[in-house]
Protein backbone atom coordinates (compact mmCIF):
# COMPACT_ATOMS: atom_id res chain seq x y z
CA UNK A 1 0.00 0.00 0.00
CA UNK A 2 2.77 2.37 1.01
CA UNK A 3 4.59 1.33 -2.16
CA UNK A 4 1.58 2.10 -4.37
CA UNK A 5 1.13 5.52 -2.80
CA UNK A 6 4.83 6.23 -3.37
CA UNK A 7 4.52 5.21 -7.03
CA UNK A 8 1.56 7.49 -7.55
CA UNK A 9 3.70 10.42 -6.43
CA UNK A 10 6.84 9.39 -8.37
CA UNK A 11 6.15 8.88 -12.07
CA UNK A 12 9.80 7.99 -12.74
CA UNK A 13 9.69 5.10 -10.27
CA UNK A 14 6.34 4.04 -11.70
CA UNK A 15 8.00 3.94 -15.11
CA UNK A 16 10.67 1.60 -13.68
CA UNK A 17 8.08 -0.76 -12.22
CA UNK A 18 6.17 -0.83 -15.51
CA UNK A 19 9.26 -1.76 -17.57
CA UNK A 20 10.20 -4.42 -15.05
CA UNK A 21 6.71 -5.92 -15.27
CA UNK A 22 6.94 -5.81 -19.05
CA UNK A 23 10.17 -7.80 -18.90
CA UNK A 24 8.54 -10.33 -16.58
CA UNK A 25 5.72 -10.75 -19.10
CA UNK A 26 8.19 -11.14 -21.98
CA UNK A 27 10.08 -13.79 -20.03
CA UNK A 28 6.91 -15.68 -19.08
CA UNK A 29 5.43 -15.58 -22.58
CA UNK A 30 8.69 -16.15 -24.46
CA UNK A 31 7.42 -19.44 -26.01
CA UNK A 32 4.41 -17.55 -27.40
CA UNK A 33 6.29 -14.46 -28.58
CA UNK A 34 9.11 -16.38 -30.23
CA UNK A 35 8.09 -20.03 -30.55
CA UNK A 36 11.09 -22.40 -30.73
CA UNK A 37 11.12 -24.71 -33.71
CA UNK A 38 10.72 -28.43 -33.28
CA UNK A 39 14.30 -29.30 -34.29
CA UNK A 40 15.88 -27.10 -31.61
CA UNK A 41 17.63 -29.04 -28.85
CA UNK A 42 17.06 -26.20 -26.39
CA UNK A 43 14.84 -23.12 -26.71
CA UNK A 44 17.89 -21.03 -25.79
CA UNK A 45 19.67 -21.96 -29.03
CA UNK A 46 18.83 -19.10 -31.33
CA UNK A 47 17.57 -20.34 -34.71
CA UNK A 48 19.54 -19.30 -37.79
CA UNK A 49 18.14 -18.27 -41.13
CA UNK A 50 21.01 -19.54 -43.25
CA UNK A 51 24.73 -18.98 -42.81
CA UNK A 52 25.33 -15.68 -44.61
CA UNK A 53 28.13 -13.73 -42.92
CA UNK A 54 26.60 -10.24 -43.27
CA UNK A 55 23.79 -9.14 -40.91
CA UNK A 56 20.41 -8.65 -42.61
CA UNK A 57 18.09 -5.70 -41.85
CA UNK A 58 14.65 -6.10 -40.24
CA UNK A 59 12.15 -7.90 -42.47
CA UNK A 60 8.78 -9.66 -42.00
CA UNK A 61 10.63 -12.93 -41.25
CA UNK A 62 13.06 -11.38 -38.75
CA UNK A 63 11.44 -8.25 -37.30
CA UNK A 64 14.62 -7.06 -35.56
CA UNK A 65 16.92 -8.28 -38.35
CA UNK A 66 19.67 -10.88 -38.05
CA UNK A 67 23.25 -10.84 -36.80
CA UNK A 68 26.35 -12.13 -38.51
CA UNK A 69 25.73 -15.84 -39.10
CA UNK A 70 21.98 -15.06 -39.37
CA UNK A 71 20.95 -15.46 -35.73
CA UNK A 72 17.46 -13.99 -35.31
CA UNK A 73 17.79 -10.86 -33.14
CA UNK A 74 14.11 -10.80 -32.07
CA UNK A 75 14.35 -14.39 -30.84
CA UNK A 76 17.61 -13.65 -29.00
CA UNK A 77 16.20 -10.57 -27.29
CA UNK A 78 13.01 -12.36 -26.17
CA UNK A 79 14.68 -15.51 -24.82
CA UNK A 80 17.57 -13.41 -23.56
CA UNK A 81 15.09 -11.90 -21.09
CA UNK A 82 14.80 -15.31 -19.44
CA UNK A 83 18.59 -15.63 -19.40
CA UNK A 84 18.88 -12.21 -17.77
CA UNK A 85 16.35 -13.06 -15.04
CA UNK A 86 17.99 -16.43 -14.40
CA UNK A 87 21.47 -14.94 -14.02
CA UNK A 88 20.44 -11.76 -12.18
CA UNK A 89 18.13 -13.39 -9.65
CA UNK A 90 20.30 -16.50 -9.32
CA UNK A 91 23.52 -14.61 -8.59
CA UNK A 92 21.85 -12.20 -6.18
CA UNK A 93 19.90 -14.90 -4.30
CA UNK A 94 22.98 -17.06 -3.72
CA UNK A 95 25.13 -14.03 -2.87
CA UNK A 96 22.58 -12.80 -0.31
CA UNK A 97 22.48 -16.27 1.25
CA UNK A 98 26.27 -16.56 1.52
CA UNK A 99 26.67 -12.96 2.66
CA UNK A 100 23.95 -13.28 5.30
CA UNK A 101 25.45 -16.46 6.75
CA UNK A 102 28.99 -15.02 6.81
CA UNK A 103 27.85 -11.67 8.23
CA UNK A 104 25.61 -13.28 10.85
CA UNK A 105 28.27 -15.77 11.96
CA UNK A 106 30.86 -12.98 12.21
CA UNK A 107 28.56 -10.77 14.28
CA UNK A 108 27.30 -13.64 16.44
CA UNK A 109 30.63 -15.20 17.41
CA UNK A 110 32.80 -12.08 17.32
CA UNK A 111 36.45 -12.32 18.36
CA UNK A 112 38.84 -14.33 16.21
CA UNK A 113 36.11 -15.80 13.99
CA UNK A 114 34.79 -12.33 13.16
CA UNK A 115 38.31 -11.03 12.49
CA UNK A 116 39.14 -13.93 10.14
CA UNK A 117 35.83 -13.75 8.26
CA UNK A 118 36.01 -9.99 7.77
CA UNK A 119 39.63 -10.23 6.57
CA UNK A 120 38.47 -12.81 4.02
CA UNK A 121 35.85 -10.28 2.93
CA UNK A 122 38.63 -7.66 2.60
CA UNK A 123 40.71 -9.98 0.44
CA UNK A 124 37.80 -10.70 -1.90
CA UNK A 125 37.13 -6.97 -2.07
CA UNK A 126 40.71 -6.39 -3.24
CA UNK A 127 40.22 -8.67 -6.24
CA UNK A 128 39.49 -6.98 -9.57
CA UNK A 129 35.90 -8.17 -10.00
CA UNK A 130 35.48 -8.47 -13.75
CA UNK A 131 38.91 -9.98 -14.39
CA UNK A 132 38.49 -12.53 -11.60
CA UNK A 133 35.05 -13.49 -12.90
CA UNK A 134 36.53 -13.84 -16.39
CA UNK A 135 39.25 -16.20 -15.16
CA UNK A 136 36.79 -18.37 -13.26
CA UNK A 137 34.35 -18.52 -16.19
CA UNK A 138 37.17 -19.36 -18.57
CA UNK A 139 38.20 -22.21 -16.23
CA UNK A 140 34.69 -23.57 -15.71
CA UNK A 141 33.65 -23.42 -19.34
CA UNK A 142 30.85 -21.59 -21.14
CA UNK A 143 27.22 -21.39 -20.09
CA UNK A 144 25.05 -19.67 -17.53
CA UNK A 145 25.95 -21.97 -14.63
CA UNK A 146 29.69 -21.08 -14.79
CA UNK A 147 28.74 -17.39 -15.15
CA UNK A 148 26.50 -17.58 -12.08
CA UNK A 149 29.20 -19.34 -10.05
CA UNK A 150 31.85 -16.83 -11.09
CA UNK A 151 29.75 -13.74 -10.38
CA UNK A 152 28.65 -15.14 -7.01
CA UNK A 153 32.17 -16.08 -5.95
CA UNK A 154 33.35 -12.50 -6.31
CA UNK A 155 30.09 -10.69 -5.54
CA UNK A 156 28.83 -11.78 -2.09
CA UNK A 157 31.03 -9.57 0.10
CA UNK A 158 28.98 -6.40 0.40
CA UNK A 159 26.02 -8.37 1.81
CA UNK A 160 28.27 -9.86 4.50
CA UNK A 161 29.43 -6.37 5.49
CA UNK A 162 25.92 -4.92 5.64
CA UNK A 163 24.42 -7.87 7.52
CA UNK A 164 27.21 -7.80 10.07
CA UNK A 165 27.00 -4.07 10.76
CA UNK A 166 23.18 -4.17 10.90
CA UNK A 167 23.26 -7.02 13.41
CA UNK A 168 25.79 -5.18 15.55
CA UNK A 169 23.54 -2.10 15.46
CA UNK A 170 20.26 -3.87 16.16
CA UNK A 171 21.72 -6.13 18.86
CA UNK A 172 21.96 -3.17 21.22
CA UNK A 173 18.34 -2.12 20.79
CA UNK A 174 15.89 -2.33 23.68
CA UNK A 175 13.56 -4.92 22.21
CA UNK A 176 16.46 -7.34 21.86
CA UNK A 177 17.41 -6.88 25.50
CA UNK A 178 13.76 -7.47 26.36
CA UNK A 179 13.62 -10.68 24.31
CA UNK A 180 16.85 -11.87 25.91
CA UNK A 181 15.47 -11.26 29.40
CA UNK A 182 12.58 -13.57 28.53
CA UNK A 183 15.19 -16.27 27.98
CA UNK A 184 15.33 -16.40 24.18
CA UNK A 185 18.41 -18.25 22.93
CA UNK A 186 21.05 -16.44 20.85
CA UNK A 187 20.14 -18.37 17.72
CA UNK A 188 16.45 -17.56 18.19
CA UNK A 189 17.33 -13.88 18.71
CA UNK A 190 19.42 -13.72 15.55
CA UNK A 191 17.12 -15.63 13.22
CA UNK A 192 13.71 -14.45 14.47
CA UNK A 193 14.33 -10.99 15.91
CA UNK A 194 17.45 -9.45 14.42
CA UNK A 195 17.77 -10.75 10.85
CA UNK A 196 14.26 -9.77 9.70
CA UNK A 197 15.00 -6.17 10.65
CA UNK A 198 18.48 -6.29 9.16
CA UNK A 199 17.14 -7.38 5.78
CA UNK A 200 15.83 -4.00 4.57
CA UNK A 201 19.18 -2.53 3.52
CA UNK A 202 20.04 -5.93 2.04
CA UNK A 203 16.86 -5.81 -0.02
CA UNK A 204 17.77 -2.39 -1.43
CA UNK A 205 21.30 -3.49 -2.26
CA UNK A 206 20.06 -6.73 -3.81
CA UNK A 207 17.58 -4.94 -6.04
CA UNK A 208 20.24 -2.60 -7.37
CA UNK A 209 22.71 -5.48 -7.73
CA UNK A 210 20.33 -7.53 -9.89
CA UNK A 211 20.69 -5.00 -12.67
CA UNK A 212 24.43 -4.63 -12.31
CA UNK A 213 24.99 -8.41 -12.19
CA UNK A 214 23.15 -8.73 -15.51
CA UNK A 215 25.46 -6.00 -16.80
CA UNK A 216 28.50 -7.97 -15.64
CA UNK A 217 27.17 -11.21 -17.10
CA UNK A 218 26.62 -9.52 -20.46
CA UNK A 219 30.09 -8.03 -20.18
CA UNK A 220 31.52 -11.53 -19.77
CA UNK A 221 29.74 -12.65 -22.93
CA UNK A 222 30.87 -9.46 -24.64
CA UNK A 223 34.48 -10.18 -23.70
CA UNK A 224 34.18 -13.69 -25.09
CA UNK A 225 34.04 -15.95 -22.01
CA UNK A 226 30.31 -16.00 -21.32
CA UNK A 227 27.71 -18.11 -23.08
CA UNK A 228 28.05 -20.47 -26.03
CA UNK A 229 27.83 -19.34 -29.64
CA UNK A 230 24.22 -18.58 -30.54
CA UNK A 231 22.91 -18.77 -26.95
CA UNK A 232 20.02 -16.37 -26.39
CA UNK A 233 21.94 -13.83 -24.30
CA UNK A 234 22.00 -10.07 -24.76
CA UNK A 235 25.73 -9.71 -24.17
CA UNK A 236 26.41 -12.29 -26.84
CA UNK A 237 24.27 -10.41 -29.37
CA UNK A 238 25.96 -7.10 -28.53
CA UNK A 239 29.29 -8.82 -29.05
CA UNK A 240 28.13 -9.84 -32.55
CA UNK A 241 27.34 -6.21 -33.35
CA UNK A 242 30.88 -5.15 -32.53
CA UNK A 243 32.25 -6.22 -35.92
CA UNK A 244 29.51 -4.29 -37.71
CA UNK A 245 29.70 -0.92 -36.01
CA UNK A 246 31.38 0.60 -39.04
CA UNK A 247 28.97 0.51 -41.97
CA UNK A 248 29.89 0.86 -45.62
CA UNK A 249 31.12 4.20 -47.00
CA UNK A 250 28.17 6.53 -47.45
CA UNK A 251 26.01 4.48 -45.12
CA UNK A 252 27.56 4.64 -41.64
CA UNK A 253 24.45 3.42 -39.83
CA UNK A 254 23.90 0.43 -42.12
CA UNK A 255 23.93 -2.17 -39.32
CA UNK A 256 22.26 -0.09 -36.57
CA UNK A 257 19.81 -2.88 -35.69
CA UNK A 258 22.57 -5.25 -34.58
CA UNK A 259 23.37 -2.91 -31.66
CA UNK A 260 20.08 -1.08 -31.12
CA UNK A 261 17.78 -3.95 -30.07
CA UNK A 262 19.97 -6.02 -27.73
CA UNK A 263 21.56 -2.79 -26.41
CA UNK A 264 18.16 -1.30 -25.60
CA UNK A 265 17.14 -4.54 -23.89
CA UNK A 266 20.10 -4.52 -21.47
CA UNK A 267 19.77 -0.79 -20.88
CA UNK A 268 16.04 -0.89 -20.07
CA UNK A 269 16.42 -3.99 -17.90
CA UNK A 270 19.16 -2.45 -15.77
CA UNK A 271 17.34 0.89 -15.70
CA UNK A 272 14.16 -0.70 -14.36
CA UNK A 273 15.98 -2.50 -11.54
CA UNK A 274 17.83 0.69 -10.62
CA UNK A 275 14.63 2.74 -10.55
CA UNK A 276 12.87 0.15 -8.39
CA UNK A 277 15.88 -0.06 -6.07
CA UNK A 278 16.01 3.72 -5.86
CA UNK A 279 12.32 3.83 -4.92
CA UNK A 280 12.81 1.15 -2.25
CA UNK A 281 15.70 3.08 -0.76
CA UNK A 282 13.76 6.32 -0.71
CA UNK A 283 10.93 4.58 1.11
CA UNK A 284 12.97 2.59 3.59
CA UNK A 285 15.68 5.10 4.42
CA UNK A 286 14.32 8.28 5.97
CA UNK A 287 17.59 10.10 5.28
CA UNK A 288 16.98 9.93 1.53
CA UNK A 289 13.35 11.00 1.75
CA UNK A 290 12.48 14.59 1.17
Amino acid sequence: MKFLRYLARNPVSLFGVVILLAFVLIAVFAPVLAPPQSFQLSPYDTPRAGFLATPQPPSPEAVFGTTQGQYDIFYGVVWGTRTAFKIGLGVVAISVLIGTVVGAVAAYYGGVIEEVLMRIVDVFMAVPFLIAAMVLTALLGKGIVPITIALTTFGWMSYARIVRSEILRIREMDYIHAARSYGASDLRLIVLHILPNAMFPVLVLATMATGSMVLSASALSFLGVGTEEGYADWGQFIAYSRNWIVGQPGNPFQFWYTLAFPGAAVFLFVLSWNLVGDALRDMLDPRHAH
Binding site: G211, A219, F222, I238
Partner: peptide, 9 residues
Protein backbone atom coordinates in the same frame (compact mmCIF):
# COMPACT_ATOMS: atom_id res chain seq x y z
CA UNK B 1 22.15 2.13 -16.16
CA UNK B 2 23.96 2.53 -19.47
CA UNK B 3 26.11 -0.55 -20.13
CA UNK B 4 29.64 0.67 -20.87
CA UNK B 5 29.89 -1.52 -23.93
CA UNK B 6 26.63 -0.23 -25.42
CA UNK B 7 27.59 3.39 -24.78
CA UNK B 8 31.10 2.77 -26.15
CA UNK B 9 29.81 1.11 -29.30
Amino acid sequence: SFPVYVFGL
